[in-house]
Write a protein that binds this DNA or RNA. Structure first.
Lengths: 195, 195
DNA sequence: TTTTTTCTTGACCGATCGGTCGCAAATGAC
DNA sequence: GTCATTTGCGACCGATCGGTCAAGAAAAAA
């Protein structure tokens, strides 16, 4: 009952996510969000609460998609090693949106907000743990199929994977070329590859 | 001639740097800076120009200090391998200031500002290149003293070092423990250690 | 049709943003 | 002393920030 929404909530969330992703939280103003979504101020506030709530919702959406991407990437691989390698190569591909090096929204949010916002910190830590669970499984698989060194500990290997993807995403912000990214991935992989 | 300054420019810059480091550029307001430095508005503007100029000056100071730290760290080491290892371990130590996980100001600035600010981008890229030159020399040393694998290319190894330190600093923002950091460093080092 | 409920819209709010400016104070030059 | 020059200070500026709200519009319920 009541008057129906004139906008698609998912579409609005998607545009908000893009803005926060490309510009960060502080640098994205409500005016930007209104202009990008085409909504009036009241509508946006009524639908999503305040700026922070909207951001959190956009962040959660981004992270869920990232986890799904990782699952797909790893499951497509022919070996544990190839799974990790293809995910790292994915992270070595500089992401551009409208000429802006967006990097990874998880990394961006971790750097900008995590130290001062407990909710963001919790979300990102949980996400990190989920990602590392997937890395872990993949490493176990790689040890079993002998594509990874038998000495690799799945837990610490998983944390090492996180670290390496984060690092690549930071370098993407400074304009790392795809070639340099790939080169770094191959170098990094030496630490876990089977002898 | 004229009236002499009543404040120490270096001291003011130091405090500004700490604020920008801990809170980022956007989240640090002129009021914060005035309160932290004890200066009046006009004095700060007359001495440093606007907020961005002050930030750039603080950033340059931070980066110079970082390069010096790296030089010291590497030169103290007994081998190329130990040099890289001790620098990575330095980056695995979570930095806290007044309870805030400050991480690394270079990484923070790269993520927050580099895509939208050409000056910041240039400064950080130049810094990255300088750091990688030092890594390179250290890797060459390590190959020569047989502490590193002879197969390691100094250039790509240097970029891999950058990537790994960046990754550790991002994880520091999410509350990485010192133990996990050290564990990751040991895992990562497997990719360059001599067989 | 009337009522109820929800949504849309933009005027409006106080607070704060980065930045300017005029005036008093403090120094060296003369 | 007088003057020129620079600093310290804080009132003041327009713009913009995130956020609220009242009134109108559109649908379902009666």
């Amino acid at each position: 009952m009541g008057r129906p929404r004139e906008f698609d909530e998912d579409e609005v969330l998607e545009r908000a996510m893009s803005l926060f992703w490309a510009q960060g939280y502080e640098a994205t103003t409500m005016s930007h969000l209104l202009q990008a979504t085409g909504l009036a101020k009241g509508s946006l506030y009524q639908a999503f609460g305040d700026k922070e709530r909207l951001f959190l919702k956009a962040l959660r959406r981004y992270l869920e998609r990232g986890r799904q991407d990782l699952r797909n990437c790893l499951s497509r691989a022919d070996s544990g090693y190839e799974g990790l390698r293809s995910w790292l190569l994915e992270n070595a591909r500089p992401t551009l949106a409208q000429g802006v090096r967006t990097g990874c929204m998880a990394v961006n949010s971790a750097v900008e907000l995590a130290p001062h916002n407990a909710e963001v910190r919790k979300i990102l830590r949980d996400h990190e743990r989920s990602m590392e669970k997937l890395y872990e499984e993949c490493i176990a698989r790689g040890v079993a199929d002998r594509s990874l060194a038998s000495t690799v500990d799945p837990r610490s290997g998983a944390r090492w994977m996180s670290t390496t993807t984060y690092g690549l995403q930071v370098r993407a912000k400074l304009g790392m070329s795809h070639d340099h990214g790939r080169e770094t991935v191959e170098q990094a992989l030496c630490s876990i590859a089977a002898a």
